[in-house]
Simulated scan of single mutants.
Amino acid sequence: MKKIASGLFVTALLSACSMQPSMKPSPEGTSTVVPIEQTDIDEVANNDVTQSLATDFEMIFIDQDMSFTGTLPCADCPGIAFHLNLYRDGRFEIRQEYLERNQILLVKGTWLLEQRTLHLMNQQHTLPTFQFVSNRRLTMLDMASKPIVSSMNYHLDRSDRLQSIDTRRPMLGLYRVNGDEASFTHCETGERHSVAMTQHHMPMLRNYRQDEALQGEAVVATLTGRIGNGQDSKTLFIDQFEQFWPGAKCPEFHAPGSVQGVVWRAEKLADRYVPQQLNVRVLFRDNNTLYGFSGCNNFHASYRQRANTLQVSSLAMTRKHCEESSLIESEFTQGLQEADRAEVNGNALQLFKNNEVIMQLLPAAN
């Protein structure tokens, strides 16, 4: 009888050790603890599949602010540099930089941790879903929320300490000076910001005031800057001024409609993508003149457009030499002068020669 009682006690003890704590939904914005089920694991050789599965069986806590960084694959660029900050109060910030495309996406929102799966929620943007494979590593999941089995890197690694998000980015917008105050309206978002009077703003302000045609007028400008935080959330801090684009307007990104008045960024030369950090751009003005930047040099010329036909005169250019952009610059300027037809199709401007597309441009967002 004692043996039976002893056996029942051991059975009950083992049963109690294997029980998992009950899970209750956590209020949004609070820390979530995910218990890990204990299962029998067979020893298997390392491969892409086993590397994509969780190898750290500790509980996952987001009870402190943390940063994750890494470079993830990109379909048409060398990679996407990610910087993700998770805050213990349920907020997140993310910076995605598309390498060689001069495109930076800054997004804020709230996170939700469901078991080990991390959801990043924002109403305007669709963001990837991640899984904690350990307390120090996230891996991106596919559309079905399954691990991606690939030899390419889909991991973000945790930094030793919280790192501030770099919020600087290229911008295109309307700049205006009224008395001692300057403002900038971002074309992409329509948000208006006062411009901080810093040393990096001075060259821009000086160029504006020296051009009599711009006095009191709003002019499209390109620059690199950041929006302040807290009390400065309506203030633009300029990091670098690029140039003014007289005769341009804020583009209609989904339906530009007209060749004229839009700052066009070269996207492709034939079937070859143009690295966006070269900032190859052109503006066709209403007065039959055009000007722009070809990756190293500034240029200007006259042109004629009748219906869809196009004829561009020889370009007048500055004479700098830039090794990294010389080939792109040569192909772009040659194609611009050889084009015989221009069409706006969807949101793209296509230039043709003998009925073949030799160049495709998109409205510049920055």
Rank of each mutant, 00 (worst) to 15 (best):
E217I: 02
N135Y: 05
Q276P: 02
Y303A: 00
S313T: 15
S233R: 10
M19I: 15
T126G: 08
R226Q: 14
R95K: 08
F184Q: 04
D42N: 10
E181A: 11
A182K: 01
S183T: 15
R265V: 03
T198V: 08
D160A: 12
A266T: 06
I94Q: 01
G230V: 09
V195D: 03
W245K: 02
V344K: 12
R281L: 12
T30K: 03
F82Q: 13
Q20V: 01
W111N: 13
N287W: 13
D142Q: 08
I358T: 01
P21M: 03
G295E: 09
L278A: 04
D239V: 00
R168L: 13
N122G: 00
Q124G: 02
H200L: 01
P147G: 01
P203R: 13
E323C: 07
R95D: 00
I104V: 11
R192W: 05
F237M: 03
F92N: 01
P203W: 05
M140D: 02
E58C: 10
M121W: 11
F284Y: 00
D48P: 01
R116I: 03
L156F: 03
G90A: 03
R265L: 14
Q243A: 08
L327V: 11
N297T: 02
I358G: 04
L112M: 09
D56E: 10
L214G: 02
P203G: 10
L327P: 02
L174R: 15
N46L: 07
Q231E: 08
H300G: 06
H300R: 04
V259Q: 09
M197T: 08
F241E: 02
Y175H: 05
I238N: 02
N229S: 15
E100C: 01
R206S: 14
A342Y: 12
M143Y: 09
N308D: 14
L99Q: 15
Q243P: 02
D65I: 03
S233P: 02
R306W: 08
I62D: 07
L362E: 04
H125F: 10
D48A: 10
N122R: 02
S31L: 06
F92E: 01
A54W: 04
T71L: 03
D239I: 00
Q276A: 11
S151P: 14
